[in-house]
């Protein structure tokens, strides 16, 4: 229950809390091996996307 300018609300919060598993990382590296290593480590906790060409990231 919270106060809003003198008005009491009983409804649950409307805020959406994003969690770690909803997050994504973009790995920009021209070395495929580095992409694989980073991707396999981080893929356990977040979504992983990879780019080899930095121009594509722009």
């Amino acid at each position: 229950m919270t106060q809003q300018k003198g008005y009491t609300t009983f409804e649950a919060s409307n805020f959406e809390s994003k969690t770690l598993s909803d997050c994504s990382v973009l790995i920009v590296d021209d070395e495929q091996s580095t992409q694989l290593v980073l991707g396999s480590i981080l893929g356990e906790i977040i979504q992983v996307h990879c780019l080899s060409d930095s121009m594509q990231a722009v």
Binding site: C23, L26, V28, D30, T34, L38
Partner: peptide
Amino acid sequence: MPDLIILDL
């Protein structure tokens, strides 16, 4: 839009 970017130098 990613939440984080990892860049090779």
